[in-house]
Write a protein that binds this DNA or RNA. Structure first.
Lengths: 246, 246
DNA sequence: GTAGCATTCAAACAAACGTTTAACTGAATC
DNA sequence: GATTCAGTTAAACGTTTGTTTGAATGCTAC
């Protein structure tokens, strides 16, 4: 097949400015362009032009455009989710025998994402936006890929939240975890979306750290919210035209 | 130019099965296909084939693919946001002189969306998913269009929440409103995303009404959450490798 | 009936798409 | 020094893309 980039420079020397191997250059360019224009709207010619490699290199190294997209996601998502699980496990061991608080569990989710966002050298900022887009993409191969990538991590965190919120029915927890993931992915993805809501100072808008520190209390409060009154749901509909008092 | 569909059938009769005019058939087909495959991945030929109209009809009636997309969004978004504002105004008048509760304000946001989701005859279900996708799309013309469409409504609701939560700094409110919109759009958009989190019974998964009744308490609790401790934010970073106590 | 008008239609446009091919490179292996 | 093979390259493959064109259609008004 081919040799990895580490093998390439391990023997010789050239500690300075090792010319990024073709495969990585394609991944970097694809990450930036997929983020900016989406999967369908990005052409392989744009990618290979930005990466300054030959067009056929994509087929050679990745097989197809779809497989390239999956490779772009895997490169960062896989380590991040692995780190999330490791961090959660460590937190649990440190807190044993007591159960973790919601805040602490959310911290284990956020920190690896934060580290990625901070690592601008490696284009982390771009990647999180790309991930937010992928979440909303209905393409079957993307949906299949994401659920495979997330299945283990989600199950692990769901169990942890179950211990932190023992009074909450499991079904309710599933919903709330869904809302948490929604707010998180939307928040991490949407730089432009911020402008919908408010005029935020540039200092704030670009600061993911502060952003997540504001998101965490919001989500914790939501997770701990009292159970909804479901009697109105199964019964009649929502009072629309006739919504008097209450 | 051209005459509208109402004018067409107003004079004659044909009360049964009025043949949907070309323009509406294109809008319906485009809505379904944009939802399923996204903007870029949907071709005009797919749309005109599904609508059973001539390919050139799109250019004739809408000008371009982008303008067709905007027309698809406008058709439902404009009335929905108008209804949201009207509902909020009515609630405020009914509650005067007291301020509205957060629950009530959220209700004014949800009900018009719910009505759209219920109206399957008119493809409302599809539309909300499409809207969720558009939220995550970075295409400039989509972002420009959405912020124009939402600006008035968001400002109106932000003011209402400001009265309901007078102790909350305005900047904090902007963030939390952003989280609310994120969770809402993600929730309305993601039928497939649900499967990421949990195995939900089909009865539940397809029930938008119950979904929003579960989302509302979650969001209200988040909006009312205590202020985050920002001292750690401006100071050091997040304790990652060295996260001992609490 | 004929002029005007909005609409529909089949056909064509150039451009761009993802993928494949076959020739070529340069260093390692025997 | 011939062979091997991962990697790169330019060129071409057949499709499909959004948009435009100019002729045909059906309807209303004079």
């Amino acid at each position: 097949m081919k040799q990895t980039q580490t093998e390439t420079r391990a023997i010789g020397a050239a500690p300075r400015r090792a010319p990024a191997p073709t495969k990585d250059r394609i991944l970097d360019a694809a990450e930036a362009l997929f983020m900016e224009h989406g999967f369908e709207a990005t052409s392989l010619r744009q990618i290979t032009a930005l990466a300054e490699v030959n067009l056929a290199a994509v087929s050679y190294h990745f097989g197809s455009k779809e497989e390239l997209f999956e490779a772009v996601l895997t490169r960062r998502l896989d380590p991040m989710n692995r780190e999330r699980i490791a961090l959660l496990t460590r937190f649990e061991q440190e807190a044993a025998p007591e159960a973790l608080s919601c805040e602490r569990i959310l911290t284990a989710m956020f920190i690896p994402a934060l580290e990625l966002a901070r690592d601008r050298e490696r284009g982390g900022q771009n990647f999180l936006r790309l991930l937010g887009r992928a979440y909303a993409d209905p393409a079957p191969f993307i949906r299949r890929f994401l659920s495979e990538q997330y299945a283990v991590m989600i199950a692990r965190f769901k169990a942890a939240f179950g211990r932190a919120l023992p009074q909450l029915p499991k079904r309710e927890l599933s919903w709330r975890l869904h809302f948490v993931m929604g707010a998180l992915s939307y928040t991490l993805a949407g730089t432009d979306a911020l402008k919908l809501i408010a005029a935020l100072s540039p200092r704030e808008a670009g600061n993911d750290e502060m952003l997540l520190h504001r998101l965490a209390p919001f989500l914790v409060a939501g997770l701990k919210a009292p159970l909804p009154d479901l009697s109105e749901v199964d019964g009649g509909g929502v009072p629309v035209r006739q919504a008097g008092g209450r």
